[in-house]
Simulated assay, not measured.
Amino acid sequence: MLELRPNCELCDVDLPPDALNVRICSYECTYCAACADDVLHNVCPTCGGGLAPRPIRPRQAWRHPHISLGLGFHPASQTRKHTRWSRDEIAAMTARLKDVPPQDR
């Protein structure tokens, strides 16, 4: 199950669970759309993979009481994370991979 991390790991902007401007990689590294597009150029600085829109977890359990789903049962993470990579390391990874389609990386 996705953590739904609460912030951009690069600029630290808040990204609530229902935010539409969130991008994640397959390892759940989380970035705002502005950082994903303008700084990272669709390259995760950790794994080198692409960044896709994060799904929205429904607020309520639409199938309740039979199945316990939704943010009420599975809340978003409150643990803020930050990239471990320096801006120079990010720029080097991005420059190397930004012109390679994610499926070919």
Rank of each mutant, 00 (worst) to 15 (best):
M1C: 04
L4K: 08
L4W: 14
N7K: 13
C8R: 04
C11M: 09
D12K: 15
L15P: 07
L15K: 03
L15W: 06
L15A: 09
L15Y: 08
P17H: 10
D18N: 15
D18Y: 11
N21L: 05
N21T: 08
V22I: 12
V22A: 03
V22F: 01
I24H: 02
C25K: 03
S26H: 05
E28G: 02
E28T: 02
Y31H: 07
A34M: 10
A34T: 14
C35G: 13
A36Y: 11
D37P: 00
D37H: 09
D37G: 00
D37Y: 06
D38G: 06
V39D: 10
V39L: 09
H41T: 02
H41I: 00
N42W: 06
N42C: 05
V43H: 07
C44F: 08
C44L: 02
C44H: 10
P45R: 09
P45C: 13
T46K: 04
C47E: 08
G48W: 03
G48C: 03
G50Q: 05
L51C: 00
L51H: 05
L51V: 01
R54T: 04
R54I: 01
P55R: 04
R57C: 13
R59Q: 10
Q60E: 13
A61N: 11
W62S: 13
W62D: 15
R63V: 10
H64R: 14
H64N: 12
H64D: 13
H64T: 07
H64K: 11
P65T: 11
H66A: 12
H66C: 01
H66S: 09
I67Y: 04
S68M: 10
S68E: 10
S68D: 08
L69R: 11
G72T: 03
F73I: 10
P75R: 01
S77Y: 08
Q78W: 00
Q78S: 11
T79W: 00
R80H: 13
R80A: 13
R80M: 15
K81M: 07
H82C: 09
S86C: 12
D88L: 12
E89P: 09
M93I: 10
M93F: 09
M93N: 12
L97N: 05
L97G: 01
K98V: 00
K98D: 00
D99L: 03
D99W: 05
P101Q: 02
Q103A: 10
D104Y: 08
D104H: 09
R105D: 04
R105I: 06
